[in-house]
Structures are given as C-alpha cells and as structure tokens.
C-alpha cells in the first residue's frame, strides 16, 4: 500500500448523497480476478450512455477535473455492497482522497486498507467545498499528519481520524504482516478455545 500524507489538487464536486457502491462500480465489472484496471469503469452508468458515449454533464466528464485527486460528495458515501472493487476503482481512476460528511462502515475500512484517505467534514463544510468546486477550479491542500484540509482561499478545516488508521495510511503498512507479530496471542486464544 502506498503511504499518503500530503495531497494537493483540485477537488471534484459530486453533489449527491447516499452514493452506493453499485454506482461506484457496477456488477458487470466485478468479474475480474485482479485488483487493478477498474478505474475506467468508475461511475460507469453515470459517465456513459448505453452506447458508450460520455454523458456530458456528469462531473467526471468535465475536463476541468481531469487530474483531480480529491473527490468530494455528500452524506453516507459508499453505502450498500462490501465490494472492495469500489475503492480499487476510485484509486485506479486517480483519486487518493475522498471527502464527505459520513461514510458507510465497510466502505470506510476498504478505503483505508487501500491507501485512500477518507476525510469526514461537517455537512455544511462539504456543501461549501462542493459549491466552490462547481464555481471554479478549487484547489485543496490535504495534510494527514496535521489532520487538516486547506482551501486555496485560506479556509482551513480540521478532521478526525482514528490514530491507528492514521498511522497505517502514513506508513503504508501491510496490515497482515503487522498482525503476524501477534501470533502468540492468536495461538494462545486458540489453545484456550480447545481446552
């Protein structure tokens, strides 16, 4: 997993709440047995007509946001299915950070395990960012170490993150290798169960 700390990029405003993982990555793209290559299918049915031509007014098709690494959406982002293909698609497309007022639990975990930083800001702060991002190219500086988001107009927002997840993201750890260090505890637990 790639470590993440500072990201500086234009934000992509997605003005929708309850965005479910079926929309993030549709089932017809879940058949691959690899972790990569899902980016081109991100939000597929919002991005493309049935004949494969782009839907012009969908935000991802706006060239302004082409190199954006920060996706901003409304509450309860990532609800529904547990498919990790959703964060894989987000990452593969080029986003490293998602900002929303709230996330579905499984999706949040799935992001962290893939080096995507999911930031929670207040409803009103998110609405502010979305409207700024819609009006103009709006740049954000993300700093995970400081737990802050700073807009190009100087507005600074702070966010909370569990210290354990924070460290994992900053260091880009392989969680399984980490857990192997607790093997004696796991073995002891199993021993006790057998007794």
């Amino acid at each position: 997993m790639k470590p993440i700390n500072k990201i500086s990029s234009v934000l992509t405003p997605l003005e929708r709440k309850n965005v479910d993982t079926d929309q993030i990555i549709s089932k017809e793209f879940l058949k691959r047995i690899e972790r990569t290559g899902f980016g081109k299918y991100l939000f597929y049915h919002w991005r493309f007509h049935a004949d494969g031509t782009p839907i012009e007014d969908f935000v991802l098709n706006n060239p302004r946001f082409e190199n954006s690494e920060i996706l901003v959406a409304q509450e309860n982002f990532g609800c529904g299915s547990s498919r990790e293909h959703a964060p894989w698609a987000i990452l593969d497309y080029g986003f490293r950070v998602v900002i929303a007022p709230s996330y579905a639990d499984i999706f949040y975990n799935n992001c962290v395990k893939n080096g995507i930083l999911p930031i929670r800001l207040k409803d009103q702060e998110v609405d502010e960012l979305i409207s700024k991002g819609q009006q103009q190219n709006f740049k954000l500086e993300i700093n995970l170490e400081d737990q802050s988001v700073t807009g190009q107009d100087g507005t600074r927002y702070e966010f909370e993150i569990d210290p354990y997840w924070k460290e994992m993201l900053l260091k880009g750890w392989d969680e399984i290798a980490l857990t192997f260090q607790y093997d004696s505890y796991i073995a002891a637990y199993e021993e006790k169960q057998r007794a």
Binding site: R35, S82, R83, E84, P87, I106, N109, N110, K113, N114, E175, I176, T179, F180, Y182, D183, I186, E190
Partner: peptide, 16 residues
Amino acid sequence: FGIGTSEVEHVLSTQT
C-alpha cells in the same frame, strides 16, 4: 458482518 477483500485476506491468513 460483511468485510472487504483486504479483510478477507487478513482473516484467511490470521483468523482475526
């Protein structure tokens, strides 16, 4: 509870 694929891998290798 439901988990993602990274967690599936974690459970397969550590049962935790």
